[in-house]
Amino acid sequence: MIVGRREAWTGRAFLVLLMLVTIVPFVSLFFTALHPSGTYPAGLDWPSQPQWSNFVTAFDAAHMGELLTSSVLIVLGVVPVSLLLATMAGFAVGHLRMVGRRPVFLMFVLGLTLPYEGIITPLYYQVRDMGLLNSRWAIILPLIGLFMPFGVFWMRAHFVNVPGELSEAAQIDGANTWQQFWRVHVPLAMPAISSLAILLFLWTWNQFLLAIVLVDDPAKRTMAGALGAFQGQWGTDIPLLCAGSLLVLAPTLIVFLIFQRRFVAALLQGSLKG
């Protein structure tokens, strides 16, 4: 009983420490954003006169309205297509007894080891030869391809644990493979699909490297990518830079807080299936 209490208190202390390590940087960023423009605040220093207008100034200076529209268009171009392709491929390599499914899956796993930095140079020349530089397609199309290894790996983890009897029962009722996929397996895979959608949204919204390398016009980048141009203009104004960073982080934080229960449920479902 004493050992159990010690373990419980140790776990709680670790969680509190982890929470502080995670929250304190955001609190410091928020406090700094409220200081007068042009000052150099130190640490967790609450200003005597909070400058809430810094958020409005940062929003206008970085043209956040245009960036918000651009980010939404890029997300709408990446996430639905990636979800569809990843779900279909995960179903094929995880549930269907297709020929060569193991080598195909190993190729997707190999794609997980490729860092963005290692392929950015050939990717730049390929996008240039396609005539897509300085357009949103220069971000959308590469991201769909780069997200496929993880997306297929994620969805396969779900479909490989689905009992084959479900497909056999649907086949007896006259459903072909396409009908089995849409009417039986996709509804059962919604927790995995929704959690993957959250991850893809977060990764697309926060995409920085491809946005600054492949797109010159800040208005056609993601909000995170355009933050680099904002930093170049307002890099010496720490409060405005912090305000702009918080504005970029706000949508992803809101989405995660809204859908965190669904995301955690999908993770627990995967752990229970083993």
Rank of each mutant, 00 (worst) to 15 (best):
S271W: 02
V78E: 00
N206I: 04
V248M: 09
A33D: 02
P50T: 04
A189E: 07
W46D: 00
G100I: 01
W46Q: 01
Q49I: 10
D173F: 11
T177W: 00
Q49R: 15
R183H: 14
N206W: 05
R221F: 06
P163R: 11
N161C: 07
V160A: 12
L214K: 04
T113K: 06
V264A: 12
G77C: 11
L188D: 05
M107K: 02
R97P: 02
G232T: 06
V93A: 08
P41T: 03
L96D: 03
M1T: 14
V127R: 00
L257W: 14
L29C: 08
R128C: 04
E168H: 08
L199A: 12
P80N: 12
A157C: 07
Q269M: 15
Q260R: 15
L20M: 08
W52Q: 02
P187V: 05
G274M: 12
L188H: 04
F159G: 02
S28L: 11
N54D: 05
V255Q: 02
L246W: 03
V27R: 09
A170I: 00
V162E: 08
M64G: 11
L199M: 15
Y125S: 12
V127Y: 03
G100W: 04
Y125M: 11
L15P: 07
P187F: 06
Q126E: 10
A61G: 00
Y40L: 14
A86W: 01
P47D: 08
D237L: 05
I23L: 15
H63Q: 14
W154S: 01
W203L: 15
R97C: 04
P218K: 02
I144A: 07
P41N: 04
P142F: 11
H185V: 00
L85E: 09
F208R: 06
A61E: 10
V99D: 01
L141P: 07
H185A: 02
P142D: 09
S167Q: 12
L44T: 09
L240Y: 02
Q269V: 07
S194E: 08
Q260A: 12
G270D: 06
F181V: 03
S135E: 07
V21C: 10
Y125L: 14
Y125G: 04
Q231P: 00
Q260M: 10
S28V: 15
S194Q: 10
V24L: 14
D237K: 05
T22N: 05
A211L: 07
V184P: 03
H35S: 06
M190W: 14
M1F: 11
A169E: 03
F153N: 11
Q233F: 10
P251H: 08
A61C: 03
G270N: 05
G174S: 13
M155R: 01
L240R: 02
T121G: 04
Q231E: 12
L146E: 03
F263I: 12
P47Q: 09
L44S: 09
A138Q: 09
H185R: 05
G100H: 03
R97Y: 04
M1K: 13
T57A: 13
H158A: 09
L249P: 00
A157T: 13
H95C: 09
V255G: 00
